[in-house]
């Protein structure tokens, strides 16, 4: 269980978040949505303890401030919005970094196999020997996800649920791989872990999220099930354009939706 009460963040002189409440439960995919610059990443960074904030964040009923890096790393893994790398690591070496700190939960001897399996899950089988810097943007993003998966390989460890924090995990992926990654998130939640994901795609949010929190200008605009939260009115206020939920374009307009592919085997 992640629970945050009255989170406010200032960066430099400007206030970025104002009294945001947030909760995410194990077994659920919780999405954070909102326009660019609304404070989604900042909220996530407060939840992971990367920016100073006022208010209180608890992870599995323990105060975030009282946990050290190792304890935190064994309860949650974080996929940042962007990562830049300084040295020529191979894909395997990057994914292995997921195993340096926390506790993957896998048996000691199985660590190298986890790396392979994680790469297979993100559809990068056979990429272990490539140089990270020589991969495409979408491939790099999936390598990072494989690293994050290794860190919390078992969604529940010693009876304690673990969490994935994903900042725009599908932002540079093609449609099939968006579904692959969202299915991984789904499975992680179904296995008892919790997922907090920042998503820009409202359609994917509606398909995969059990809960959604909408952030607007540093405040929480709404939170709850996508069905109740994502209404025409809310979307119009938050995104400042006239969006209509579940309305097909007037006859002749073309649209492509992934729903039909979502539950088929995509890998």
């Amino acid at each position: 269980m992640i629970s945050a009460k009255r989170i406010s963040v200032r960066l430099g002189r400007s206030p970025i978040l104002h009294d945001v409440d947030f909760a995410a439960s194990p077994g659920r995919v919780t999405a954070i949505a909102g326009p660019n610059g609304s404070g989604k990443t900042t909220l996530l960074r407060a939840l992971t303890g990367d920016v100073p904030f006022t208010g209180r964040v608890e992870i599995n009923r323990r105060d975030l401030a009282s946990l050290d890096a190792f304890e935190l790393a064994s309860m949650r893994a974080v996929l940042p919005q962007s990562a830049n790398l300084s040295f020529p690591f191979t894909v395997r070496e990057i994914v292995r970094l997921g195993l340096v700190g926390g506790r993957s939960g896998a048996a000691g001897g199985a660590l190298e196999t986890i790396i392979e399996e994680a790469l297979i899950r993100v559809d990068l089988a056979g990429f272990a020997g490539r140089y990270y810097q020589e991969l495409s943007g979408g491939e790099q993003q999936r390598v990072q996800l494989a690293r994050v998966l290794c860190q919390v390989w078992r969604p529940v460890l010693d009876g304690v649920p673990r969490f994935l924090f994903l900042d725009e995990p599908v932002s540079s992926l093609d449609i099939r791989h968006q579904l692959v990654i969202m299915n991984i998130a789904r499975e992680f939640a179904e296995a008892g872990g919790g997922v907090v994901a920042i998503l820009h795609d409202l359609n994917l949010t509606a398909m995969y999220a059990d809960q959604v929190a909408v952030v607007h200008r540093g405040r929480l605009a709404a939170a709850g099930e996508p069905r109740t939260v994502l209404t025409d009115d809310l979307l119009e206020t938050v995104f400042e354009c006239r969006l209509q939920v579940s309305v097909a374009p007037p006859s002749g307009g073309m649209f492509v939706l992934p729903q039909s592919a979502a539950n088929s085997r995509t890998t």
Binding site: D68, V78, P80, A83, L97, G98, V100
Partner: peptide, 20 residues
């Protein structure tokens, strides 16, 4: 061990459980 984690930046090193 620590410097390997730093390759992805300080905050990621922290997320990995390293005492940054």
């Amino acid at each position: 061990r620590g410097l390997n984690g730093f390759a992805l930046g300080e905050s990621t090193a922290g997320h990995l459980g390293l005492p940054v």
